[in-house]
Design a protein around this nucleic acid. Structure first.
Length: 425
RNA sequence: GGAGAGAUGGCCGAGUCGGCUGAAGGCGCUCGCCUGCUAAGCGAGUGUAGGGCGCAAGUUCUACCGAGGGUUCGAAUCCCUCUCUCUCCGCCA
C-alpha cells in the first residue's frame, strides 16, 4: 500500500507508473473521494471539539451545584448531529482505502521497462549444461518410471495438480528441505521458523494477497482461515503491528512450508508434472531491514538462493523482472531460473523481491532508531530458497543417466543416507 | 464443549459513585546536569493515526484504554455481541 499523502500529491506519476506496469486501473475517483473525506472530517471534528468543551463546562457546573439542564438539552442536538455525520464517514473511508489497496508498488528506478517476461534481461548465468549421448526426458516420465512420482494416484486422492511422492522420491523431497534449511540457518544466519499453514484474513491483507488476489487462495469453509500460498504470509506477519527496535534489525527468517494455490486462470498451463501444483513445498527467506540497506539486502538474498543451486550443481540464470512482469507488491525482483533439459528451457525456481515499505505500511511494521524519535517503516524482502518441488524436477532432469537412473548431487548424498542414485526397483 | 477470571501506553500496573485521565505510579529508554572511574543522584522528555495552520522547527484540533455496537450532554469506567489469554472440568493427537 502506498501512503495516502504520497498518492494525493503524485497522482499523475502513479497513473504513469501503472501504465508501464501494464495495470489498467481507474483511480480517477481518488481526488473527489479524498476531498470529500477531508471536508466531512473537518466539520465533524469541529463538532466534536464543541462537544468536548461544553462537556467540561457541564462537569464544572455540576460540581458547583449549578443547574446545567438548559445546556444539556442544547448539547443533545449537537450530539445527534455528530452521530449523523459519523455514519457518513466510514463509507467514504472504505472506498478510499479500497482504492489505495489495489494500487501496486512503484518499481525501483533500476527496474527495466518492458511488457512481459520476454523483456526480462539476464543478469548472469552460472553452471555447465551437461552433454549426454542420450536424449533428455521430462521429469514426469523419469519420476513415473522410477516409481517415485505417481500422478494418477494423486488424481484419485485429490484431483489434478497434485502428486504422490513415493520411496526415494519422498525422501529426496525431504532431503532437499533439510539441505536448504541447514545452509540458510548455518551459513547464511537465518532463524528457522515453522509457522501455521493457515492464517486469518488480516494476515493476508498484511502481505497483499487480499483483497486483490482472493481468487488465488484456498479458504477454509466456515472459518476465517486461508491456506497459505507461501510462507511469506505467516512469516512477514510475525511482526505485523509491531514497532521493532533499531538494534533488532536486520531480521532474517527462513521457513519451510507447503504452499497452496488455486492456480485459477492457469488452466491448460503446465498440466503435466510437478511444475504447477495446488500444493507444493517451498523454503522461503524473509527479511526485515533498515530502509537504506534494503537493496544491498536484496543482492545478498538473491546470492543466498543461488547458493543452493550452486551446491546442487544445477545450471541457472538470474533475470531482473521488467516493469510489466513485476509482482503487485514488489519494487524490484530477481528471478532465478534453473535449466530443465527435459523441457529445453529455463524455469523459474526462485523469486527474490524487495517490497521496500509497501508491505510494512500495510502490515504496520515499524522500527525506532536508537537515539532518534518517531518511528519509521521497515523494508521487507523475501525470496524462495528454493521451491522444493521444482528443485526435485531439476535434479531428475539434469542428473538423469543413460540407464534411466538418476544420480544424486554430491552435496545431497549425506541427506539421502549415502544413496548414490535412484534407480527403478 | 461446560464453569469462571481477565484484556489499559515499550513493559509492569492504578483508575473511586461515568465528568480537567492521553491516561497516576514504577521500570525501561533519550537528552542534559552532577559525579574522577562502568553505581547512585537530579532535571526534562518519552505512543500512533488523521485534519488545520506554518517554508520549517513547530503548533493546534480529532480519534484510539482487545474489536464492534449501544446508553448518556459526557464512557477506559455502565449494557450487549465478538475475539483472544488464563484456571478448572470434559474430550482428543
Amino acid at each position: 500500500m502506498l501512503e495516502l499523502k504520497f498518492v494525493r500529491s503524485n497522482l499523475g506519476d502513479i497513473k504513469e507508473m501503472m501504465k508501464i506496469r501494464g495495470y489498467d486501473l481507474d483511480i480517477s475517483g481518488f481526488e473527489t473521494l479524498d476531498q470529500e473525506r477531508r471536508g466531512k472530517l473537518s466539520v465533524l471534528e469541529g463538532l466534536r471539539h464543541q462537544r468536548n468543551r461544553v462537556s467540561e463546562d457541564i462537569a464544572a457546573m455540576k460540581k458547583r451545584g449549578e443547574d446545567a439542564s438548559s445546556i444539556i438539552t442544547e448539547m443533545k442536538e449537537v450530539s445527534s448531529e455528530i452521530k449523523g455525520k459519523e455514519k457518513e464517514l466510514p463509507g467514504i473511508l472504505k472506498k478510499l482505502n479500497d482504492l489505495l489497496m489495489v494500487i501496486p508498488n512503484i518499481p525501483d528506478e533500476s527496474v527495466p521497462v518492458g511488457k512481459d517476461e520476454n523483456d526480462n534481461p539476464v543478469i548472469r548465468t552460472w553452471g555447465e549444461i551437461r552433454e549426454h549421448d542420450f536424449a533428455p526426458r521430462p521429469h514426469w516420465e523419469i519420476g513415473e518410471e522410477l516409481g517415485i512420482l505417481d500422478f494418477e494416484c494423486a488424481a484419485k486422492l485429490a484431483g489434478s495438480r497434485f502428486a504422490v511422492y513415493r520411496g526415494a522420491g519422498a525422501k529426496l523431497e525431504r532431503a532437499l528441505i533439510s539441505f536448504m534449511l541447514d545452509i540458510h540457518t548455518n551459513e547464511h544466519n537465518y532463524t528457522e521458523i515453522l509457522p501455521p499453514f493457515m492464517v486469518n484474513a488480516a494476515s493476508m491483507v498484511g502481505t497483499g494477497q487480499l483483497p486483490k488476489f482472493k481468487e488465488d487462495l484456498f479458504k477454509v469453509e466456515g472459518w476465517d482461515l486461508y491456506l497459505i500460498p507461501t510462507a511469506e504470509v505467516p512469516v512477514t506477519n510475525i511482526h505485523r503491528d509491531e514497532t521493532l527496535s533499531g538494534e533488532d534489525l536486520p531480521i532474517y527468517y527462513v521457513a519451510y512450508t507447503p504452499c497452496f494455490r488455486s492456480e485459477a486462470g492457469s488452466y491448460g498451463k503446465d498440466t503435466r508434472g510437478l511444475i504447477r501444483q495446488h500444493q507444493f513445498n517451498k523454503v522461503e527467506m524473509v527479511k526485515f531491514v533498515r530502509p537504506e540497506e534494503s537493496y544491498d539486502e536484496l543482492e545478498k538474498l538473491t546470492r543466498n538462493a543461488e547458493e543452493i543451486l550452486r551446491r546442487l550443481e544445477l545450471p541457472y540464470r538470474v533475470v531482473s523482472l521488467c516493469t510489466g512482469d513485476l509482482g503487485f507488491s514488489a519494487a524490484k525482483t530477481y528471478d532465478l531460473e534453473v535449466w530443465l533439459p527435459g523441457q529445453d528451457l529455463y524455469r523459474e525456481i526462485s523469486s527474490c523481491s524487495n517490497f521496500i515499505d509497501f508491505q510494512a505500511r500495510r502490515a504496520g511494521i515499524r522500527f525506532k532508531r536508537g537515539g532518534g524519535k518517531g518511528t519509521e517503516l521497515v523494508h521487507t524482502l523475501n525470496g524462495s530458497g528454493l521451491a522444493v518441488g521444482r528443485t526435485l524436477v531439476a535434479i531428475l532432469e539434469n542428473y538423469l543417466q543413460g540407464d534411466g537412473s538418476v544420480a544424486m548431487p554430491e552435496a545431497l548424498k549425506p541427506y539421502m543416507g549415502g544413496m548414490e542414485s535412484i534407480s527403478a526397483t
